[in-house]
């Protein structure tokens, strides 16, 4: 399926131009009843080659645009395609049900699992209801409640992450956004059940990490994961949010960057043109990766699982250690 021009990204303009040409020729051929299939095939091959070229040379900023694409599959769409028999469970038992964070029970290839993730809206109305996929503290508390429930029943946990950030608002602060995110991070590290986190779209800082601690962290090819929003970084560095394309170059936010920095375990490839060009195929690739990573983890003892998870995060950090005179309590 191809998207309308209105959803096209700037760097795809040459493609749209070729598509337009192909359509015109098709129409012309039909009208005049002449065979122009050779010409069409030639242009289609050109289009395919151009597409491959464009998508193999994406800049970091172009990837961010794909990750934020309004047609990119959302949590519920992925869940419907990857899992079976999904049953949504609601509420944090403390304050309310946060529509920006969804969780529930499902089967992954016959294995009962708990699935958790942020939900963006498809249109303005839904986006307002879902708060543009930005959870409040109760969203993180609901997620943690469901993940602890999963651990109780030794059910693996799959989280699908797509969030611009945990919501920055007055009520969110009043209800302890920082504490909610922190507690979820801390407790996820100690849940005695396999956890696989997949960054499917935007990995917005603490709002992503709040459901992102796992035994395996996978990332879609055009997803991004960053400590600060590209715009926020640009505002700090250059006092101008419009410099975001430069900021992502400095921040190194793509799946390739994160694999190189050893923060993620695997890049999940997307169909040519990005996940939104073929959601079904994307879901199948994710499903395959989930099963492949989960199968060995199911054999781990709880002890091994937690020890390896601890080590995974323990070793992240880049520094040098020099001799120091003041040293007196080294371990």
């Amino acid at each position: 399926m191809r998207n309308e021009d209105s959803y096209s990204m700037d760097f795809e303009k040459p493609l749209r131009e070729l598509e337009r040409q192909i359509k015109e020729i098709e129409l012309f051929a039909k009208e005049k009843e002449i065979d122009m299939s050779e010409e069409i095939a030639r242009l289609q091959a050109k289009e395919e080659a151009l597409k491959k070229k464009i998508y193999s040379e994406l800049t970091r900023w172009q990837k961010v645009q794909i990750a934020r694409h309004p047609k990119r599959p959302t949590f519920l769409e992925f869940v419907a395609m990857i899992f079976t028999d999904f049953l949504e469970l609601h509420g944090d038992r403390l304050f309310r049900d946060d529509p920006a964070m969804i969780g529930g029970l499902a089967y992954l290839d016959g294995i009962p699992v708990t699935v958790v993730g942020q939900q963006k809206g498809r249109d303005t109305k839904e986006n307002i209801y879902r708060n543009f996929g930005m959870p409040h503290p109760e969203g993180y508390r609901k997620a943690l409640r469901l993940m602890k429930q999963a651990a109780k029943f030794k059910r693996p946990i799959i989280t699908l992450i797509d969030v611009v950030g945990a919501y920055p608002g007055i009520e969110a602060e009043e209800r302890g956004q920082g504490e909610a995110v922190a507690r979820s991070i801390m407790e996820m590290a100690a849940l005695e059940t396999p956890i696989i986190a997949v960054i499917t779209g935007e990995g917005g800082s603490g709002g992503a990490l709040g459901i992102g601690v796992g035994d395996r962290v996978l990332m879609l090819e055009h997803a991004y994961y960053s400590v600060i929003s590209p715009e926020g970084c640009a505002s700090i560095l250059w006092k101008n949010a419009a410099e975001a394309p430069q900021a992502v170059e400095a921040l190194r936010v793509t799946a390739e960057d994160l694999l190189e920095l050893q923060v993620i375990d695997e890049i999940i490839p997307e169909p040519l043109g990005g996940a939104h060009h073929d959601p079904e195929k994307t879901a199948q690739i994710i499903k395959e990766a989930l099963i492949r990573h989960l199968t060995p983890l199911l054999e781990y003892t709880g002890e091994r699982l937690l020890a390896e998870r601890y080590e995974k995060y323990r070793k992240i950090g880049v520094f040098e250690e020099i001799e120091s005179d003041q040293e007196s309590t080294g371990e």
Partner: peptide
């Protein structure tokens, strides 16, 4: 988290919390 270390500094949140 320190912006200049990007995702590495975000992961320090997980590292300290798990400890």
């Amino acid at each position: 988290a320190r912006m200049q270390e990007g995702i590495i500094s975000l992961m320090q949140m997980a590292k300290t919390c798990q400890a």
